[in-house]
Design a binder for these strands. Structure first.
Length: 596
DNA sequence: ATAAGTACGTA
DNA sequence: CGTACGTACTTATT
């Protein structure tokens, strides 16, 4: 098999793979021909730290650490607090190159080697325990005779010997080298994107380690306001729940037995007071607020019920640790456009609960959110010089409005409609103005839409593949093809036109949303790297918003570096400073103090 | 047990 | 003014 010497172009920095098996043993292998190191992960960490902390221009100072996936291989070194600056995450590079989310090592390996991914073997118990299998890799290797990576390698229950673990590390190096050359063929931006995505994946492991600082007393108080006091036992919980329900049910005498959690029964209750609705969703009920007192009562009940169930005492107990940190799992990209995701409410905490997110003693938050990021990203992706000129304003809708000769509000609706919406409706005239003023940007949106309709994949600005073949479960839920006045055929409930336009909207949105996610991650990675020496921790990433937990004495310096990081990362990401990006940055003690 | 449907929180 | 995500509860299906 390959010795995985560095096959990149001259000047490619050295790489070293660090991989960890579930047994706790790790291998550290560099591509300079040095002797591999194998042993318990904990004993290898000092060596990894030396590489991670090395500075300067010498070879070791620029070494990029390679692993299959940060969640697995970087766990121990993140737990140890090792500040890795440069890494290559094979899984994230694979997701960038090929789209989708499945990036198991065997899949990334096959794709990197040009082997059809459909032929990747399933991991079975036989791969792990049946040593007589003729199709398995030979002893001390991880590649099978058919060229596939052993699908059992890296899976649960895998117990490699040291030679196999070294082979596993060498395979990661080989994969990274192949991926880099494939990304380079897409353009230099794609290699930079892989670096940035890899840093984001590492940041995700750190986010899961550090958690979001919580003021537990305030959290308890806010929950109590919505869900009532903490129940003493199960019977108490039922009583409190009944009392919460009674506030709604007493508005409709004779219907006290309605189950408010059953939408069908709620519909019946509403019908009894003369409100006939197709469903009981919030926006359907909203117009009936003044029709009957039960409607506002029900809507208030729903908000309280949401906090009581999803963000109640159970949530607090399960996810906020004894150190008052809210923790959840993080992923560096979703399976569609590439935004970060988080679990346990970190990405959808109701605004009412945000006062409970508070810096710990001696610390503050530096909060920064990107202003109007999506139209600014459109200016970069499309390369529209006129639209880029508009981004130089702090409020880009102002120059757009001036150019179109309309009010700012009209210009804003038109831009948003062009980026997200159907190209029709109220903003029609302003949309025509956009076409004339910014033809390059509008053309990009139209082209993306058309590619989506044709099921053709596209790439974000940084090169992430947006696939339109295997996906779009959500298109069935979207738009629904209703409004069919005539009695349609008994089958074909949704027209193909509805599916086509759903794909078109998805594609148009994904290229903007996904490119914005790339810029965001580049920014976050830069903030992480440049504020570490201040004792700063990124504790939340929310699509266009960063929350950094900082020792109070370094608040101003950290703010300045967050702003600086945006200028630098935007210039690197966009390849120029033609398009301006702006952040609203403030120093606060509670997340709720953020102005909006 | 698992899946689908409904509902709603965030950007 | 679209897209994406995660979570919980109910109902239907295996």
């Amino acid at each position: 098999m390959s010795t995985a010497s560095n096959p990149g172009p001259p000047g490619t920095p050295p790489r070293a793979a660090f991989v960890v098996a579930a047994t706790g043993r790790a291998a550290f292998v560099d591509d300079s021909g040095a002797e591999p190191v194998v042993g318990p992960a904990s004993t290898l960490l000092p060596r990894v730290r030396a590489v991670a902390e090395a500075t300067g221009d010498d070879a070791t100072g620029r070494t990029r650490l390679v692993w299959w996936a940060a969640t697995v291989d970087a766990r121990d070194l993140v737990a140890d607090g090792i500040p890795v600056a440069r890494c290559w995450d094979v899984a994230e590079a694979h997701r960038l190159l090929h789209g989708g989310w499945d990036a198991r090592p065997a899949v990334a390996w096959a794709a990197a080697h040009g082997i059809p991914v459909e032929t990747v073997p399933e991991a079975t118990r036989g791969d792990l325990f049946d040593f007589s299998a003729t199709d398995g890799p030979p002893p001390g290797a991880v590649v099978r005779p058919d060229g596939h990576l052993d699908p059992g390698a890296g899976a649960a229950g895998w117990e490699p010997d040291d030679a196999t673990l070294v082979a596993w590390a060498r395979a990661a190096l080989e994969c990274a080298a192949l991926q880099e050359s494939q990304l380079r063929a897409l353009g230099p931006r794609a290699v930079a994107a892989a670096h940035s995505e890899s840093a984001a994946a590492l940041l995700c492991v750190e986010l899961a380690r550090d958690g979001l600082p919580i003021d537990r007393a305030v959290a308890e108080d806010l929950i109590a306001r919505a869900a009532g006091p903490r129940p003493a036992d199960h019977a108490d919980a039922l009583r409190i729940r009944r009392e919460r329900d009674q506030v709604v049910l007493r508005e409709v005498p004779g219907r006290e037995s309605t189950d408010l959690r059953n939408p069908g029964q709620v519909r019946g209750l509403l019908a009894a007071v003369g409100i006939d609705v197709p469903n009981t969703r919030k926006w359907v009920l909203e117009p009936f607020r003044d029709t009957h007192r039960v409607v506002p009562a029900l809507l208030e009940w729903r908000k309280a019920e949401r906090i009581a169930t999803t963000y109640g005492y159970g949530w607090l107990d399960a996810h906020v640790g004894p150190d008052d940190r809210l923790r959840g799992g993080w992923t560096a990209c979703d399976g569609a456009a590439g935004r970060m995701t988080a679990q346990n409410g970190l990405h959808n905490l109701p605004i009412e609960l945000r006062p409970a997110v508070a810096a710990h003693p001696g610390h503050v938050f530096v909060r920064a959110d990107l202003g109007q990021i999506e139209p600014r990203v459109l200016a970069v992706v499309s390369g529209d010089p006129a639209f880029a000129a508009a981004t130089r304003a702090a409020d880009l809708y102002a120059p757009v409005a001036e150019r179109l000769g309309v009010e700012r509000a009209v210009a804003k609706v038109a831009v948003l409609a062009a980026m997200y919406g159907q190209r029709s409706g109220a903003a029609g005239e302003a949309l025509k103005g956009l076409e004339r003023a910014y033809p390059v940007a509008m053309r990009l949106l139209d082209d993306a839409y058309a590619a989506g309709v044709r099921r053709e994949p596209l790439r974000t600005f940084g090169g992430r593949l947006i696939r339109l073949d295997a996906m779009l479960v959500s298109e069935a839920a979207g738009s629904g093809a209703d409004g069919s006045a005539g009695a349609g055929g008994s089958e074909a409930p949704a027209s193909t036109a509805a599916y086509d336009s759903a794909r078109g909207r998805f594609a148009r949105n994904a290229i903007i949303q996904g490119s914005a996610a790339e810029l965001f991650k580049a920014w976050a990675a830069t903030v992480r790297a440049t504020t570490r020496d201040l004792g700063a921790q990124i504790v939340l990433c929310l699509h266009d918003e960063l929350l950094v937990h900082v020792p109070a004495e370094h608040a101003e310096e950290a703010s300045a570096r967050v702003e600086r990081a945006l200028v630098d990362s935007a210039r690197r990401w966009a390849g120029s400073s033609q398009v301006r990006f702006v952040a609203d940055t403030s120093v606060i003690e509670r997340w709720s103090q953020a102005k909006d």
